[in-house]
Each structure stands twice: as C-alpha cells, then as structure tokens.
Amino acid sequence: MLHFSSMIRDYGIVPSMEHYVSVVDMLGSAGHLDEALEFIEKIPFEPSVDVWENFMCLCRVHGHLEHGDHCAELVKQLDPPQLNEQTKAGLVPLKDSDLKQNEKKKLASPLEVISRVNEYRAGDTSHPENDRIYALLISLKEHMKEVGYVPETRYVLHDIDQESKEEAILAHSERLAFANDLLTSPACAQIRINKNLRVCGDCHAAFKIVSKILGRMIVMRDAKRFHHFNEGICSCGDYW
C-alpha cells in the first residue's frame, strides 16, 4: 500500500488531493486497478470527485465496466456538473438538447501531449511494449464479443485455421497503433491514427465497437478518407 508518511516525516509536506489523484493515475495507467481502488479506500479523508473521475476513466480504458459504472454514480453524487466529463467517458447518456454542444467540445479537445510518432506493420512485434499491446488487444476482443462482435476473417487471405485468422486480424497495424495509444495517452483523450492503406472491414467494425465500450473518440485517416469513430458510429456511415 502506497502512503505519504515519509513526505510529512522527512520533508514536512502535507499531501494534497493532487498527490492522491496522481498516485491513482499512476497505478491505474499501469493496469493495477485493484491496487488503485485499495489506495482510494485508504485515503484518510473523503476522496474528491477528481479522484473518482480519474479512476472511472481508467476503468473504462482497461475494460472494467462495472467499476467504471460505480464510479460514475459516485461522481454524480459528489458533483452533478461533472456530467459532461462523465459523458466523455461514455458512462452517462447525453440529453438530446446537449448533443450538439457536447459534440463540439469533443471535437475541439485534441490529445494534449504528442511526444512521438510510432510506426507499425501488420503483425509487428518489435515495439518495446509489445506484450502489453497484444495483451490489451486480446482483452478488448473478449469485451467486444460480449456485445456482439464477430471477427470477419474473410479479410485474411492466407490459408490458415480460424484461430490463426483471428490472431492475424488482431495484429493489423491500425489495431497495434490504437492499443499503444490507449496505453500511453491521457484517460479519455482522443486517439488519432494514420494508415497508408484502406482500413479493412473488420477493423472498421472493431473501432466502432471500442469507441462505444471505452468512451473514446478515434480519428483515423486511411488511404481514402477520415473516419471519426464515436459512440459506436463512424462518420463515413459505413461507406468508404
């Protein structure tokens, strides 16, 4: 269990709520959601709405939907005005009257920090975070299947068995790029992908689904057009 006793004892610094939010973000971003929740529960005073909102977004990133829904309820109780932020995480449905206004806000909220550009090829295993990337994709596939996703293996042209075809689709370059961005970008931030070929039908369907279950907008530029995936819908209207 992480604590701040040494800050007080050695430096005379009383930890603020920002310190607690930072630790939750550190643990949750690394996938240690149980440890993050344990840390929150042991905060010596009432956790702020920022703590729960941050943890909510991290739960959505890692596919822990039940924890995310529970956090959304806490955020609503602690600070109803935070509903706009919850909506970004896909946890609270928008009222019809708010759709246009909030959509503009989403489109005007690009990724705040872009430190590098990563390049991927289908089946690439050279990335330093390769194991985490593939583990995340496998986990997401299971969540996607729960809401009706069926891999379209006809896009795999090699003569291999069904399981190998599903693995091949999972390793398409755009999915590798997406998984790495999901692991490294701020919670709830927009994800941007450039692809020099036309996106395949299976990846297109997959991105629609993950945009809904994770509450993340995905902007992808392929060889023909821009695709804005949001809340399970693509701007191309499934015609590209």
Rank of each mutant, 00 (worst) to 15 (best):
residue 189 A to Y: 08
residue 87 T to A: 15
residue 218 I to Y: 00
residue 181 D to H: 09
residue 237 G to H: 07
residue 18 E to F: 15
residue 55 F to G: 01
residue 18 E to I: 13
residue 84 N to M: 13
residue 217 M to S: 11
residue 152 E to D: 15
residue 99 L to Q: 14
residue 200 C to R: 11
residue 209 I to Q: 03
residue 78 L to F: 07
residue 39 F to Q: 11
residue 55 F to L: 06
residue 105 K to D: 07
residue 121 R to N: 04
residue 21 V to G: 03
residue 156 V to K: 02
residue 140 L to G: 03
residue 181 D to G: 04
residue 213 I to D: 02
residue 149 Y to W: 12
residue 216 R to I: 05
residue 145 K to S: 13
residue 85 E to L: 13
residue 172 H to V: 01
residue 72 A to V: 02
residue 69 D to G: 10
residue 3 H to Y: 07
residue 107 L to H: 11
residue 213 I to S: 01
residue 124 D to F: 02
residue 32 H to T: 03
residue 124 D to V: 01
residue 55 F to Q: 02
residue 168 A to W: 04
residue 5 S to L: 10
residue 38 E to S: 15
residue 34 D to I: 12
residue 7 M to P: 10
residue 105 K to C: 07
residue 154 R to S: 12
residue 229 F to Q: 05
residue 62 H to C: 05
residue 105 K to V: 06
residue 88 K to T: 04
residue 228 H to A: 15
residue 79 D to T: 11
residue 221 R to V: 08
residue 206 A to P: 00
residue 158 H to C: 07
residue 98 D to S: 12
residue 62 H to Y: 11
residue 137 L to C: 03
residue 217 M to Y: 09
residue 102 N to I: 13
residue 226 F to V: 14
residue 131 D to M: 00
residue 139 S to D: 10
residue 234 C to F: 02
residue 42 K to Q: 11
residue 120 Y to C: 05
residue 17 M to D: 15
residue 32 H to K: 13
residue 203 C to N: 07
residue 129 E to N: 10
residue 198 R to G: 04
residue 38 E to A: 11
residue 69 D to S: 13
residue 67 H to N: 08
residue 88 K to A: 02
residue 110 P to A: 01
residue 40 I to A: 00
residue 81 P to E: 12
residue 98 D to Y: 07
residue 153 T to S: 15
residue 179 A to C: 05
residue 128 P to H: 09
residue 205 A to W: 08
residue 197 L to A: 12
residue 102 N to E: 14
residue 100 K to R: 08
residue 216 R to S: 10
residue 33 L to F: 06
residue 78 L to Y: 04
residue 70 H to T: 15
residue 86 Q to W: 08
residue 138 I to F: 00
residue 221 R to W: 06
residue 41 E to Q: 11
residue 14 V to S: 15
residue 95 K to P: 07
residue 183 L to P: 04
residue 85 E to F: 08
residue 203 C to E: 08
residue 174 E to Y: 07
